[in-house]
Design a protein around this nucleic acid. Structure first.
Lengths: 340, 340
DNA sequence: CAAATTTTCCAAAGCGCTTTGGGTTGCGCT
DNA sequence: AGCGCAACCCAAAGCGCTTTGGAAAATTTG
């Protein structure tokens, strides 16, 4: 059943039926109802491809996930973010086009998307230092929103959390507890968020006339294994840390494992603060907050990012929208005064 | 730049240019090269919507994620599966359309997809007991592949792992170590995979004239928190288990936490076996296998599922393709002889 | 009551591609 | 020469919708 047939069955023109269905004013209310009823009865649904060809709008938003061979690094975050964004897209009638593209091909993927307008806008996640995607998308004129930010954070739209502030605060919290040998286990520092977190860490130390100790800093993909191995090495090495500041719950779980194997009790023998993205399956609050954590829901971020991007798409020459979210510090059972 | 313009610039008809570009044989090799070169020079990309309207093919595969309010339960799995599938789709030129739909609207979402053929096929994940989606999609004539299976597993295509066998084997392994009070912490048993695992567990016990103890069985969404709380309760209760069989690494991490807080050492005081989907950020092998685990890569499953689905789409009246993967049991440090 | 609006509807022209159903052309063959 | 057959190319008809530019009918206005 297509528009034409539906129109014929109603003794109306396709034009009128189309207008009736799409809520245009130049059709009598009575006719509109007749059309609506017939459409429902015939189980009519407009052919989405035809509509898109005719309107030129894709009603689709692209998420491009660069595959790096270690795509895993974004992984745990990415699902929750996606679900958050997807909820909003669904509500607004947008489709979500998900592309896994080898990192070397992301540029051509974006060019492709722009060339045939297969998406109305794209979401950019996990920007790196001076991420080339931002310049490219600007040049292509494709509306986009960055989750995170990089460079001077000027001239484009983004939503980010206050990473630096969060880690400075977390570090101060540990310092106040008397810790001096604090380890930082960070995400890959090619990512902007990781750099900011590190700066926050260093600034807080510097403000107390302390410095970050090179042997107590590590950064890599945020896997449980990396947290485990790194914490283990640090704990077994000379001048082991009394506290850890880590960039994700996943890492923290690895740290906990390493500590546990060495008979160290979190919150007593060793302190751990992590950043908690509030991943749904790693709820930190069950039975009272386990980890002391800076926290910010990645799913909520996904939702908000989707809203902003949709607004941007509807209004392409809107000035850049930039939103910085502050993060809470929740005190859990994983921190305590520096022993000894 | 569109086809017509490109054709004009080449003094060829759109027909020929289209054929040249799409590899049809009825065009001279020399002309084809000329066209190809011009297309590249002009940075021409065919309008995807026009092509789709003309061919009637969507070149898109739908993944519909039902939002249940606790969508989180599929979460950790779903990202890796998606990445695996996405890799294959990208390679084969398919788009991945991701829909988050409130569970109550999944039926209408599928009907919609079928009505306007906005996707060529759909992937069904995490089937429940007698999942209505299977009947619906069959009725709609939309090609689909189920990751998992349910009911009599007849008459439709699926890929699944041998859940029952895996959990029987794992249980036997624990029995052989002398354990008798074995706890099962399972996923939600409305899901087929969880039922099968439970049956495997029960069968293994029955074969040794033992029975599953009701107070040592629990099932719910597979979060770290659920594993933690449940294991804690069991360990604190009367007749505590000496071993745990759990349905995911995430749960197992919760169990580990509960054990750790009670001063119990895994592999010595308490044994834990889990099923490991080989999530990329939870690699169990770092520093030697941590958990003894039945394992099967969810990402590989995603890849294979995508391949099968694409095959099905290309050949709609192919008889059902069904693939059952056996799973390995990797012995790690989390299991040991029953103490005492 | 005629004229000027307003309301309601329609014909037809796209959107940019694929594909059917031929035409030409050039070659080998008799 | 003349024929048949490939090889190569094209015109035109869709695909199913939206939208422009009216026209006809209904309503208001002077």
């Amino acid at each position: 059943m297509n528009l034409k047939e539906l129109a014929e069955s109603l003794n109306l023109s396709p034009t009128t039926v189309s207008r009736a269905l799409n809520g245009y004013p130049e059709v009598r209310e009575e006719t509109r109802n007749r059309v609506m009823a017939a459409a429902k009865a015939a189980n009519y649904a407009p052919n989405i491809r035809a509509r898109r060809l005719a309107t030129g709008r894709a009603m689709t938003i692209g998420h491009v996930i660069p595959l790096t061979g270690r795509a895993e690094m974004v992984n745990p975050i990415f699902a929750d973010f996606l679900i958050g964004a997807g909820e909003v897209y669904a509500a607004e009638g947008y489709d979500l086009l998900l592309s896994m593209v080898p990192e070397s091909e992301t540029e051509s993927a974006f060019r492709q998307m722009a060339a045939n307008a297969s998406v109305d806008g794209v979401m950019v996640q996990a920007p790196q230092e001076n991420d080339p995607r931002i310049g490219l998308l600007t040049e292509l004129g494709l509306p986009f929103l960055v989750h995170g930010r990089t460079g001077d954070a000027q001239g484009y739209s983004w939503l980010d959390i206050a990473n630096l502030r969060a880690f400075r605060r977390a570090t101060e919290f540990l310092l106040d507890l008397g810790h001096r040998r604090i380890a930082l286990i960070n995400g890959q520092e090619s990512f902007d968020f990781a750099r900011r977190r590190r700066r926050g860490f260093e600034e807080a130390l510097a403000a107390r006339d302390a410095v970050a100790l090179p042997h107590l800093m590590a950064s890599d993909a945020m896997t449980e294994g990396f947290g485990y191995l790194t914490a283990g090495k640090m704990l077994d090495g000379p001048a082991p840390p009394t506290a850890f500041l880590v960039s994700s719950v996943i890492l923290a779980i690895g740290v906990r494992r390493a500590a546990g194997e060495r008979g160290l009790r979190m919150g007593r023998d060793i302190s751990v603060i992590c950043h908690d993205d509030e991943l749904s399956y790693l709820n930190n609050d069950v039975g009272g907050p386990a980890f002391t954590a800076t926290r910010s829901s990645i799913r909520a971020a996904g939702r908000r990012c989707a809203e902003i991007l949709i607004k941007l798409i509807g209004n392409p020459d809107h000035p850049p929208i930039q939103e910085l979210w502050d993060v809470d510090l929740t005190v859990g059972r994983s921190t305590g005064p520096c022993p000894g």
